[in-house]
């Protein structure tokens, strides 16, 4: 399974970024091979609007099956859900490594809705 973690830095000890659309970057982890790759998100950090939608599009295009992030708004949620990507929200795990550990031990719940409001309208 390919999992995209929103991250403030580029290694597993970085904090899990609480923002999805405007996350610093995404760390894509293949849970079978343990391979990790960085997915840049600079463009969306500076986007005037629709950062969540575009970030969702990018992680889908990168082949993610799941997203682990702090908060995810309704538009990004809708796009991820349409592509069958599972969404996990967590505010309890500080670093990407801790969140990964929680995911692998099945203690994270799949979200069935967005957990924050839209920014735009």
């Amino acid at each position: 399974m390919n999992v995209a973690f929103s991250a403030t830095g580029s290694d597993l000890n970085s904090d899990l970024d609480q923002r999805f659309g405007r996350a610093g970057q995404f760390i894509l982890v293949d849970t079978e091979t343990n391979a990790a790759t960085i997915l840049e998100n600079t463009q969306n950090m500076n986007a005037a609007q629709g950062a969540g939608i575009q970030a969702a599009q990018n992680v889908i295009n990168a082949g993610a099956d799941a997203v682990v992030t702090g908060n995810c708004g309704p538009k990004a949620f809708q796009v991820l859900q349409a592509a069958g990507v599972k969404i996990y929200h967590t505010q309890e795990h500080e670093t990407v490594a801790e969140a990964l550990k929680a995911l692998l031990s099945d203690t994270l719940q799949v979200a069935d809705s967005a957990n924050v409001e839209a920014h735009w309208s």
């Binding site: 986007a47 005037a48 609007q49 629709g50 950062a51 939608i53 575009q54 969702a56 599009q57 889908i60 538009k75 809708q78 796009v79 991820l80 349409a82 592509a83 069958g84 735009w120 309208s121």
Partner: peptide, 23 residues
């Protein structure tokens, strides 16, 4: 269409294009 849109108003996911008209 999603690639062209500079305002992120279209996404393509799950084999279909989705429009966010307000954007």
């Amino acid at each position: 269409c999603a690639e062209l849109c500079q305002f992120n108003a279209i996404a393509v996911a799950g084999g279909r294009a989705m429009v966010f008209a307000e954007l």
